[in-house]
Structures are given as C-alpha cells and as structure tokens.
C-alpha cells in the first residue's frame, strides 16, 4: 500500500520550480466567496477558461483563476503546479478541473484540502476513454499511441450546434501529446479535508463515456450533473453557460450549508 505519510519522492527528488501561466480575474471578487482555480485538460490551457467560464465566475463575485500547467510535465509535476498555485492564493480554493485536468485535480485533492472541487467531463478512466477515442477518431488517436500528436476533432469536443468556423481556431490551438500515465495511472487518492465534490458532464461526450461519469461521481458519493447535447469541451461549446451556472449554483449552496 502506498504511504501518504512517507513521501520519499517529494523529499529526495522535489519537483523543480517552473514558470506557470495563471490568468486571474479578481476585481469584482466578494470577500465571502472562496477563489476558484480552473485546471485545463490535455492540450488546453488557461485560455480555454478565459473565453467564457472565467469572466462568468468573476461576474458572480468569485475570484477566478485559471492555470496552464508547465508544458511537458508529467502527472506529478502537473499536480505539483496545481497545489503550488492553490497554496499561493490568499484563501482556501475551489478546484475546477476539466478533462485530464480533472484527473490532475483529483490527485491534487490528495495533497491539498480544497474548499470544494468540480470535476468536469473527467478523464479519469484511462481505458474506456482510449477505447472511445479510437472508435470515434481513429486517425487522430493512433499516432498518439506511438508518441505522436493527438488530433482531437470537432465531433469529440463539441456538440452538433457548434459552427465549424468557430471551432476550427480552438482545434488548431489544442496541441495534445498524451502521456502513457493518462491511461495507466493509479486510482486517485482519497481527498484530504473531505471536500464536497461535484461531477459534471454530458451523456453525449465522445471522450468520456456516460458509465465513466457515473462511476467517478459514485466514487465521490454523488451522481453526475448532466448536460445533454454538449460535447467534451463544456467550457467552449455553444451552451457553455449552462454548466458553469449550475456549478456556481451548487457551490453557493454548498458554501451556505457549511
């Protein structure tokens, strides 16, 4: 059994410091609300949240931050980056991870007592996700199995309502080189500090199967909040406002209960 107390890897071989891009919107932040830290998934960066979700969260009074983890970092380095940024913020943070960023977030929750956490379209079941990707987009996925680039297509990331000309610049911007550990990683650790966790996703997501959403939500003692018709990129798809409003409503409710 892996020890949570004896962290020899961190003691003898600490993750070195690296530049991390953090986009922040804090002007309208209310004192009684915790800061939000958005963690992007594979190939995405802070920009993916800066489009819609970050300004929306800021409008509702949250200090909103989005992080781009170091390029080329492994899972351990990405978790380190998330925990470093979380600990650098003035108050206990709500973590919002998307895609493979939800996996990073789930690991970070084992290292940092988040105020609450949201796992959006979480890529935490490696094999089903790989299988789904091979089925929907074999040409784009196969090279990634041999160390090449993963080319995600419009069908995977967005719902049918997304116009091609709007999707293309984003698709061009996503440069994904998945690591083997995205599939082979250990199960995420038990979160420290027992934070409330919400799983959101879409039954029509071509990357994260519905069964996966149910299983992950059950791990954290709940059921997933579903937004039918949306693709994997909940924060960029045409109906982006629905999931973020629901997440912020849930958060407001959780915070008022505590």
């Amino acid at each position: 059994m892996r020890s949570e107390l004896l962290r020899f890897a961190d003691w003898t071989d600490p993750v070195p410091a690296a530049a991390r891009e953090v986009v922040s919107l804090t002007e309208d932040a209310r004192d009684d609300l915790p800061p939000l830290l958005f963690v992007p998934g594979l190939g995405h960066g802070a920009w993916a949240f800066a489009e819609h979700w970050l300004p929306r969260a800021a409008e509702r009074g949250f200090a909103a931050h989005a992080l781009t983890p170091r390029p080329g970092g492994d899972l351990r380095a990405q978790v380190h980056d998330v925990v470093q940024v979380a600990a650098s913020l003035p108050r206990q943070v709500v973590l919002v991870g998307h895609g493979a960023g939800a996996l990073v977030t789930a690991y970070a929750m084992g290292r940092y007592p988040a105020r609450a956490a949201v796992l959006a379209a979480p890529v935490m079941d490696g094999w089903p996700t790989l299988w789904a990707a091979l089925r929907t987009n074999p040409v784009g996925t196969l090279p990634a199995l041999f160390g090449g680039r993963l080319r995600l297509n419009r069908k995977q990331l967005f719902g049918p309502g997304m116009p091609a000309e709007q999707a293309q610049p984003w698709l061009d911007r996503i440069v994904a080189r998945p690591r083997r550990e995205l599939v082979t990683h250990d199960p995420a650790p038990r979160p420290v500090g027992d934070p409330p966790v919400l799983v959101v996703g879409s039954p029509d997501d071509r990357i994260v199967p519905r069964t996966s959403l149910d299983r992950i939500a059950a791990l954290y003692g709940g059921a997933p909040l579903l937004f039918p018709g949306m693709g994997h990129d909940l924060m960029l798809d045409v109906t982006w406002s629905e999931p973020i409003e629901a997440v912020l409503d849930w958060l407001a409710k959780e915070l008022s209960e505590q």
Binding site: R7, W11, P14, P16, Q84, A87, S88, R111, Y112, P113
Partner: peptide
C-alpha cells in the same frame, strides 16, 4: 531543507 519541512498539505513556494 524545504521539502522536508513544509506542511504536507500546504507546500512552501517552490521558488
């Protein structure tokens, strides 16, 4: 040293 001294759930800045 720093990694052996920080709280396990609230690291010191890595810089």
């Amino acid at each position: 040293s720093r990694p052996l001294t920080e709280f396990p759930d609230f690291p010191m800045p890595d810089t």
